[in-house]
């Protein structure tokens, strides 16, 4: 089975994240880049499926050159090879453009199963897997907390407000995973060493037959018109509990008409 995992590098949430005032896009140089946490779950799920059913795991990342660290991390976990979609023309792509560029690349490299994280910590759109399914015309098995494969039949438990839906489809398909579907493995020393030798193919816009008018700042469907650093919340009232802390909190709630 040919499994492709879409992995994204995001700015570390523990560092200060900024938009660039030049073009209102994410300032990727300002913060350290790390693998998006939910993508680790996606890689782990791909490795598990490979272990159970055989095949190959390819990591697909679209991002600037420093995103190669994230690719290495996924390779160190055990993925077999990677495709790095990298082109200055991609800078500033919104969700529609990103899904288009990734879909074009996926068509080029081929897949039986595409696995994504359900959300990234920077954009947090949570729409990419659905968009890929739409663009590729394949079944959408998103927000999965469990994935089972039997031949070409695939079943997932899709998380809902009320519990979960059991969903069935036939491969090829697009899956997105939620947190706690598994426990992502830590790369071993051996894994880290091996990752250095694994093949990483770079793709530019032309290699993936991506129409440049559909991507980047030129192709965007939506834009950030302006942004501002949120003013700090006005300092609140902090009291020390002297046996009446709960009562004082109740007074506050009453003053705000919550009770």
């Amino acid at each position: 089975m040919n499994i492709v995992v879409c992995v994204k590098q995001v700015p570390d949430t523990a560092t200060e994240r900024k938009l660039s005032s030049k073009d209102n896009t994410l300032d990727r140089d300002a913060a350290d880049g790390v693998i998006n946490e939910l993508c680790e779950y996606a890689v782990e799920e791909a490795l598990k499926i490979k272990e159970a059913h055989g095949g190959e795991v390819t990591v697909l990342t679209m991002g600037p050159s420093k995103a190669s660290d994230t690719i290495r991390k996924a390779l160190a976990m055990g993925a077999d090879k990677a495709v790095h979609l990298i082109d200055d023309a991609l800078h500033g792509s919104d969700a529609l453009s990103t899904s288009y560029a990734l879909a074009q690349t996926l068509k080029k490299i081929g897949f039986d199963l595409v696995i994504l994280g359900s959300e990234s910590t920077d954009a947090r759109t949570g729409v990419l897997a659905a968009m890929l399914a739409e663009r590729l015309g394949t079944p959408q098995l998103t927000l999965a907390r469990k994935v089972d494969i039997d031949g070409t039949a695939i079943t997932v438990e899709r998380v809902t407000d009320y519990g979960y839906d059991k969903v069935e489809a036939t491969l090829p398909a697009v899956v997105s995973v939620v947190e706690k579907i598994n426990d992502p493995r830590y790369p071993s020393f051996k894994g880290i060493m091996a990752a250095k030798k694994k093949p990483v193919q770079t793709f530019g816009v032309a290699d993936a037959e991506i129409d440049a008018t559909q991507i980047g700042l030129e192709g965007k469907w939506s834009e950030v018109a302006e942004f501002s650093v949120a003013p700090p919340r006005a300092a609140g009232t902090i009291v020390k509990d002297e046996g009446d802390g709960g009562t004082k909190a109740a007074d506050f709630l009453a003053s705000k008409k919550f009770i």
């Binding site: 006005a234 009232t237 902090i238 009291v239 802390g245 709960g246 009562t247 109740a250």
Partner: peptide, 20 residues
């Protein structure tokens, strides 16, 4: 916080519930 109480939640939370 717009309002904060520094102390043990085991005391404060039940007291708050009672007051509400």
């Amino acid at each position: 916080a717009d309002f904060g109480v520094v102390g043990d939640l085991n005391q404060i939370v039940p007291q708050l519930s009672g007051e509400v």
